[in-house]
Simulated assay, not measured.
Amino acid sequence: MARPEPRKLEVVGKRQVTPNMLRITLGGAGMLDFPENQTSAYIKLRVPDTDSEREVVRTYTVRSHRASEIDVDFALHEICGPATLWALNTQVGDSIMVGGPGPRKLVHADADWYLLVGDMTALPAISGNIEMLPETAKGTAVIEIMDEADIQDLKKPNDFIIEWVVNPHPGRDSGLLVDRVKAVTFAAENPSVWAACEFATMRQLRDYFRKERGLDTGNLYISSYWKAGSTEESHKIAKREDANMVAS
């Protein structure tokens, strides 16, 4: 099945959610044929790259989806890539070509207990996942942020716990997130675990979930959203090589 052509969306809003999270709201005529209910789906942004002087594609999550617009959140790291630079510089009235949306990666609806893990790049997807859980859901989210001021007031079920881990330099000390995750008590025999973060941290968490917790693809989704010191292109190569190693 052919992928749909990228659509032109307009920047209709821009605001600082927290010191290190910037939200861009996209809308306009291009949203008329945008599929419904795409919170937590991924999209492909076509943004200029000043280094190569060409257009590059970057993957982001739909933080929230309303009838005529979507929110896209950008984590503001110390070193900004092309997409973050675009978000910092764009203004209401600008336009951008957007591909997708791609499939949503959601927790398993029939689980007894949930664990969601990630850093600020995964916070939009984690937030959407939590918001879509039934009010009776139980679980824990462990989220790495750069500063206490980056804590967000997320809509969640009453019996759902959110733990925030402060790491001012994401990608440099993966132990902060990994150690906090290892301290979480698994509260059910039928868990659903969802994790996304930096590449090296992902590999440590994957080993823990698979080898120590005995999880598999039936109750575990885990992915790296970025790799410290790498572009998205080189990160994709690293992910492919890693997947081949795991499969062999």
Rank of each mutant, 00 (worst) to 15 (best):
R104C: 10
G214R: 10
D49R: 05
W86M: 10
W194G: 05
A122S: 15
Y42H: 15
I237K: 14
V56E: 11
V62A: 10
E241W: 08
M245T: 04
P6F: 12
E232M: 09
L176Y: 12
P191S: 03
C80Y: 02
N158F: 02
Q16F: 02
E135K: 05
F34A: 08
D179P: 02
P4H: 03
E241D: 15
P124D: 09
V12L: 10
L154W: 09
R172Y: 14
D110Y: 03
A149K: 14
V62G: 10
P6T: 04
K14L: 11
G27I: 05
R210K: 14
V166P: 02
K138M: 00
E53N: 15
L176Q: 15
R104T: 14
K105Q: 13
Y208L: 05
P134T: 01
R3Y: 12
A122G: 07
R15M: 06
R63E: 03
K105M: 13
D216P: 02
L76D: 10
S95N: 05
V57M: 12
P19Q: 04
H169G: 00
V11Q: 09
L154S: 06
R15A: 09
R104N: 08
N190D: 11
L177F: 13
R3M: 08
D150Y: 08
A228K: 13
V184A: 05
Y42T: 13
K8T: 15
K105I: 04
F160D: 00
A122D: 08
M120Y: 03
S40L: 01
D51W: 03
A247L: 13
I161A: 00
A149D: 14
R180E: 14
V98A: 09
A111W: 01
R46C: 02
A243E: 14
T231F: 04
